[in-house]
């Protein structure tokens, strides 16, 4: 990373600037890849950019930083994403 020589305070970009925000989560989004129709609605609406868009437009969820807001499950037209309580015993 390029560091700048300036007198004022400068912050540099870093993944997880506020730590691993995934531990804020109460409900965990679970993606059913068989149901997914690759419409990418979850990807564009995710406020946290934790839905990763692959080359073939399929998606994955980054659980390290997902805050569990549930927007992805709510905007999914085919209900491919469901929410499950974190730490639930199977």
């Amino acid at each position: 990373m390029k560091k700048y020589d300036v007198v004022t305070t400068i912050s540099y970009p870093k993944k997880g600037a506020m730590g691993k925000t995934g531990n804020w989560r109460v409900f965990r989004p679970i993606l059913d890849k068989k149901k997914c129709v690759k419409c990418l609605r979850c990807w564009i609406y995710c406020p946290e950019a934790t839905i990763i868009r692959n080359k073939d437009d399929s998606v994955d969820i980054d659980y390290v930083y997902c805050k569990g807001c549930g927007i992805c499950a709510n905007v999914c037209k085919v209900k491919a994403i469901t929410l499950e309580r974190e730490g639930k015993k199977k």
């Binding site: 600037a17 925000t21 990807w43 406020p47 950019a49 980054d62």
Partner: peptide
Amino acid sequence: IKDLPVEECYIPGCAACPGCPATM
């Protein structure tokens, strides 16, 4: 939505509330 660029200038792990419209 498919036509929007993949490149991301926003990095995960910020201080926004869950479900924040500003980061969206």
